[in-house]
Design a protein around this nucleic acid. Structure first.
Lengths: 187, 187
DNA sequence: GGAGATAGGCTAATTGCGTTAGCTAGAAGC
DNA sequence: GCTTCTAGCTAACGCAATTAGCCTATCTCC
């Protein structure tokens, strides 16, 4: 029996890639095992089970999303930063729908859970956008939730094919950015 | 063997209620059968299977959401209509997270699929809100998608417990309404 | 009111997935 | 070279979805 040389990170990365390809709900332990060249039970040497796998994929997704948005925001401010952050976030979700889905609806087990840590990093990246607008201290949390809702809603609806009709989705997203810019002004 | 007096509508309604209670992913055919007082295979006399059940629950959710938003908007215009629609939608999703989740990520099979029909009714209700703002004909579709994204994003993040920290969620939502009102003006 | 047809219920059996138990061999350290 | 640990394997179990096939309550029509 040749060793496959797996480790948890490799299994999670392969799981995330597979989830993006076939959808999180269709990500089966057997399919993942086949992908990494191993029999199904061997996966349990690296991850605790399907729930643990999903949590780790979710944490990976949040980490990568935080990186993408963080990089996009660097050196920009105001509307430029908003547009860059929103586009980076949407691109990430649309290109990685499976892993992003794994980050939704899972409760961090505590403040040190990678899910919580990476989630905070993603929020920090969006917080940087808000610095370019004049928003009262007490309203920052509300604005952050609103901005996150807007980006999350659009990206998930698009990746779920929730926009039925024919108008161009990219155009709609640019309109959304202008809308958000107006909403954040005089907030 | 006494008859249970079931029909498809009763099964779907019970399934929707159960999905709200335990979560869509935990809605099992066995659990639903137990709830309606029947053995599992008997459910297949009324629905085609789990996928069919989910589609029907999703269509029911969209229909009820369209009713709720439609009623809320009646007799209101402008910001009042926006606030009423948004609150009605969020209340519906938060109170019925399971059935609403069933409406996401399912493709209508055609324009006459109840999913498509009820989905259009829901959009129509939101379209009524936009009539109170001066939005160019060519931008209505973009505004509609944006508004839907905003409401959908907030409601699903909240029902998934995606807002970690402590600030009051209702306050955030009121801020969101004001934000959307600003964004829709001078659009 | 009875005879047949229909439909809604049941049990039994199959399949597929997640998971656990227990074995085995390869790699790493003395 | 021997021991020890670990990553892999096979076998087996349990649970959920589904299908097949039976049986009887209810409905219709004479």
């Amino acid at each position: 029996m040749p060793r496959a040389g797996l480790d948890p990170a490799a299994v999670v990365a392969a799981g995330a890639a597979l989830a993006d390809e076939v959808g999180l709900a269709q990500l089966t332990m057997g399919l993942l095992a086949e992908r990494v060249g191993v029999r199904t039970p061997s996966l349990y040497k690296h991850v605790g089970g399907q729930e643990d796998l999903h949590r780790r994929i979710g944490a990976l997704a949040l980490s990568q999303a935080a990186d993408a948005v963080g990089v996009a925001v660097q050196g920009r401010a105001g509307r430029d930063a908003l547009a860059a952050a929103a586009r980076a976030f949407r691109s990430f979700v649309v290109e990685h729908p499976g892993r992003y889905a794994a980050s939704i609806g899972v409760e961090p087990s505590g403040p040190d859970d990678p899910l919580a840590v990476e989630g905070r990093r993603l929020l920090d990246a969006f917080t940087a956008v808000l610095r370019g607008y004049e928003i009262a201290e007490s309203d920052v949390d509300h604005a952050l939730r609103t901005l996150r809702s807007l980006c999350h809603g659009f990206a998930t609806l698009q990746s779920a094919n929730g926009f039925q009709w024919s108008v161009d989705v990219d155009e709609s997203f640019e309109w959304l950015i202008a809308f958000a810019d107006r909403g954040l002004r005089a907030g």
